[in-house]
């Protein structure tokens, strides 16, 4: 019975090749869609629902003041924060993100030494922030980062700035993953950029 059906729908060689190619492309697209969706559900960016207040439809302007221990250009943590900012400026986000040093700004970036807090970096903000952080500050903790490389510091700075731009933690080895290897993951990844695009879509 089956052979009869197949006999009836017998197809010639060039058509077979064409169908095989189509089947391959189709399955490939289907599989990739399935794989991509699977990982997105489990691992994609998480939004806080709050982000830097100073933005319009095209630009995000982050005004900040260097703290008392970050006054020297070229010093380790000043370089880390500057590079972390540059990484976000260079990321291909929908909004152009710009960082503006301004000694009169209330938004401070400070370097501290705190042996009671194991966190290398902290982002503080006003508690009732939806949708905008009206007050915020960024800190690095040199006690927790003794012996760290430039890229590990840079990764920490970029991560904290990610919080300012509206991101929470992920588990997908992006910049917002607290478990990432900071010496390898130190610039915003596609998922971080997608997150910031979604964050400022208001």
């Amino acid at each position: 019975m089956r052979s009869i059906v197949l006999e009836k729908y017998y197809i010639n060689a060039p058509l077979r090749v064409a169908l095989l190619t189509l089947a391959t492309i189709g399955s490939l697209i289907l599989l990739n869609v399935l794989l991509a969706n699977g990982s997105n559900v489990a691992e994609a960016y998480v939004l806080k629902g709050c982000h830097e207040a100073d933005h319009d439809a095209n630009y995000v302007d982050v005004h900040f003041a260097w703290g008392t221990n970050l006054q020297t250009p070229g010093s380790a943590w000043r370089t880390a924060w500057s590079t972390g900012m540059q990484d976000w400026e260079d990321a291909n986000t929908d909004h152009v993100i710009l960082f503006w040093p301004d000694s009169t700004s209330a938004h401070k970036i400070n370097s501290i030494w705190d042996q009671y807090n194991p966190s290398p970096g902290t982002f503080s903000h006003n508690y009732f922030c939806q949708p905008h952080y009206s007050s915020w500050s960024l800190k690095n903790n040199t006690w927790a980062t003794t012996g760290w490389s430039a890229n590990e510091r840079r990764s920490t700075a970029g991560h904290e700035i990610g919080h300012l731009l509206g991101l929470l933690h992920t588990t997908n080895n992006s910049l917002m993953d607290v478990d990432r290897d900071r010496s390898v993951v130190y610039v915003p990844k596609t998922d971080d950029i997608n997150g910031v695009n979604a964050s400022f879509d208001d």
Binding site: H55, D61, N117, Y127, C129, H132, S134, H159
Partner: peptide, 28 residues
Amino acid sequence: HSHPHAVGSADGPGVDGDTMVALNFDGT
């Protein structure tokens, strides 16, 4: 670059003068 500055997008409602803060940590 020079670009139009954000207008009217400063503090959200109810956050003026709000000194209560929250924290986000990185690791460990």
